[in-house]
């Protein structure tokens, strides 16, 4: 469980430098050195007056269960947003009018953000969840021309934290 500094919140108060027993927080790029950070130590987290440092958890609880009716409705709406994302992407790539391309790009982006959020709430929020595990396994079986390394890495992450 290493510490992580949010650079947007960091007020350069330097308390983390004073309390860190290993010097892990004192880096030129503001990223806390995970190889030096003592897992679970928390000294910098409690000392930071800007609330800019948090601990990255190692394990996560099971994702909240989803009712079938919610999954079905979220998926139906998510699919509609996906299709609109696709339509707008094609227009954004193919229109000969710059304003239309700009507008369609915004519509595409917006639809993808909505699709991600709506489908996430169909049971795919946590990378380590059972639903994601099931999905990853189906994908592995379904596609021969697949980026295998990617899926193997993700199944490993998923199994490790369960």
């Amino acid at each position: 469980m290493p510490a992580y500094r949010n650079i947007r919140l960091c007020g350069k108060d330097c308390m983390c430098l004073y309390v860190c027993p290993t010097g892990a927080t004192n880096t030129e790029d503001s990223i806390i050195d995970a190889s030096k950070c003592i897992s679970g130590c928390m000294a910098c987290v409690t000392a930071c007056p800007s609330g800019a440092i948090s601990m990255i958890p190692d394990t996560y609880p099971a994702e909240q269960p989803k009712a079938d009716s919610v999954v079905a409705a979220q998926r139906a709406l998510g699919l509609s947003k996906v299709l609109q994302w696709c339509i707008a992407s094609v227009v954004a790539a193919s229109s000969d009018n710059a304003t239309t391309r700009q507008f369609a790009t915004a519509i595409a982006k917006s639809n993808l953000r909505m699709a991600e959020d709506i489908l996430r709430e169909a049971g795919y929020m946590l990378p380590q969840s059972d639903e994601v595990h099931k999905l990853l396994e189906t994908l592995e079986n379904a596609a021969p021309d697949f980026p295998k390394d990617a899926i193997n890495l993700l199944i490993k992450l998923n199994s490790m934290s369960r």
Partner: peptide, 25 residues
């Protein structure tokens, strides 16, 4: 398309957990 959107959302979840290799995957 739906799987793509689910995966790009999970990539962001990995980024928040500082799992950068998994984010790329």
């Amino acid at each position: 398309g739906e799987i793509s959107a689910i995966c790009s959302s999970l990539a962001k979840a990995c980024e928040k957990q500082r799992l950068m290799a998994e984010m790329e995957a």
